[in-house]
Design a protein around this nucleic acid. Sequence first.
DNA 1: TTGGATTTTTAGTCACGTCTAAAAATGCAC
DNA 2: GTGCATTTTTAGACGTGACTAAAAATCCAA
Lengths: 208, 208
Amino acid sequence: MSKSTQREDHLKALYALAHGHASTWVSTSQMAVHLGVKPPSVTAMVQVLSELGWAEHRPYHGARLTATGRKLALSLVRKHRLWETFLVQRLGFGWEEVHDIAEQLEHVDSLELVERLDAYLGHPKSDPHGDPIPKADGTFHPEGEICVLADLDPVVRCKVKGVRDGSDDTLSAMSARGISLGSTLLPEDITTFPVTWLDQLLVCKAQE
Amino acid sequence: MSKSTQREDHLKALYALAHGHASTWVSTSQMAVHLGVKPPSVTAMVQVLSELGWAEHRPYHGARLTATGRKLALSLVRKHRLWETFLVQRLGFGWEEVHDIAEQLEHVDSLELVERLDAYLGHPKSDPHGDPIPKADGTFHPEGEICVLADLDPVVRCKVKGVRDGSDDTLSAMSARGISLGSTLLPEDITTFPVTWLDQLLVCKAQE
DNA sequence: TTGGATTTTTAGTCACGTCTAAAAATGCAC
DNA sequence: GTGCATTTTTAGACGTGACTAAAAATCCAA
């Protein structure tokens, strides 16, 4: 398990630069810039994350989150945004002042604390910046974020919001199966999709 | 300045074992037991605290707080007790559950945060355990703590609450000068006391 | 006051997370 | 495809803060 502020910070950087996608590769130098450290330090830490099962490291290529790592990153984002909400809503901070403080508060380790804070704040759906707050189970509220289909976990009914890097033949292949902007995807259909589509379809959860 | 959780924890241990007195010597092994580390580690850290000007180290004798160190320790105690108050009063934790969490929260570095938290909680005078919360300037509320005369900083009018290790002749010498339980000491008198009395007289601030 | 038990410090090692400098892999231009 | 520029990793070092084992200081008892 072995948490530590540094490990958590690197995990968060990976999450942020991959825009929350477990499928996106991020270069160690990108992470280095984001974290304000030198690339070799990131390489070392990414290897640690890899041993912890939080990330996958492909040498000379980059790193990406594992499912476990993404869940963990999400719990950090949750804590960060709940604390920001607290700081602004209850302590009267300006929304631009709270990031650095929340950065520290998010590393406090107590599940009970997070859940009570969440309840105290009335289970807010988004933080003062308007960013959505992940739920305790690592999912977003239904009306929440757009994500890549590959990141939909668990696989549920969802709506198509866009296609990334969609080449013409990919798009026409999708059309051929009745997939277009706004169409609803069912779990049983998703499992029959070509694997490459999973990284290309941008979706959000459909309301129940 | 160079804060760090470890330095702060050692400083707090010193403060706690000296019962908040800048005049009391504490052995490194006492601190080691309190912190759950081995004595050599404490020796090393005490030397660091000494370089930082937070403590004085007399080899083979022990360590004690400097005025600066005591102020810093007080600010940590203040943060700890404010957070405990928050956890119990606002988040509904039981008073016995909050220590470990407050232990983490107290290391969050933001003056603004502490002051806003204090205001949010209505400037509480004591925490859920009944322990007094130091004010931002490092003093206790007037009806607050009993301390050794030597620790009264700045020296102000105060009331005698007791005498530590008072031998018979010390006590009679004090009586001879009109000092007894409950009597009020004036700053201009205090400066004329024998130095040894400063470590023996227990006092609290007199109301204005 | 001297000797032995105890306490404390010093010396040397280790893990973590950073760094710089050098080597290795990648990839783009030609 | 070969070669060079760029990116990334490896190698080796350092600071912090912990440890164990050994040396030094202190304290107490005879």
